[in-house]
Computed example of a mutant assay.
Amino acid sequence: MGVFSESVEVACSPAGQPVRLVWGNRSYRIVAEPVRWYQRRSWWVEEQRAELGRGAGLVDHEIWRVQIQQGGRSQVRTLDLSRQGNPGRWRLIKVHDAIQSLSA
Results as ranks from 00 to 15, higher is better:
2 G>C: 03
3 V>F: 02
3 V>L: 09
4 F>G: 02
5 S>E: 13
5 S>K: 13
7 S>P: 04
8 V>S: 03
9 E>Q: 11
10 V>A: 02
14 P>S: 08
20 R>Y: 05
21 L>Y: 00
22 V>T: 14
26 R>N: 07
26 R>T: 05
27 S>E: 11
27 S>N: 07
28 Y>W: 12
30 I>S: 01
31 V>T: 06
31 V>G: 00
31 V>Q: 00
35 V>Q: 03
36 R>K: 10
36 R>H: 08
36 R>P: 00
36 R>E: 05
37 W>N: 09
38 Y>F: 06
41 R>F: 00
41 R>I: 07
42 S>T: 04
44 W>H: 11
45 V>I: 10
46 E>D: 13
50 A>W: 08
50 A>C: 10
51 E>K: 11
53 G>I: 09
53 G>P: 08
53 G>A: 11
54 R>C: 04
55 G>H: 09
55 G>D: 12
57 G>S: 12
58 L>S: 02
60 D>N: 14
61 H>Y: 12
61 H>Q: 15
62 E>R: 08
63 I>C: 08
63 I>Y: 00
65 R>Y: 02
65 R>D: 09
66 V>G: 04
68 I>S: 06
70 Q>M: 13
71 G>P: 07
74 S>G: 10
74 S>I: 04
76 V>K: 01
76 V>D: 00
79 L>R: 02
82 S>E: 15
84 Q>W: 13
86 N>Q: 12
86 N>E: 14
87 P>I: 08
89 R>M: 14
91 R>M: 15
91 R>F: 14
91 R>C: 11
91 R>L: 15
92 L>D: 09
94 K>V: 12
95 V>G: 10
97 D>I: 08
99 I>W: 12
101 S>R: 10
102 L>I: 13
103 S>W: 14
103 S>N: 15
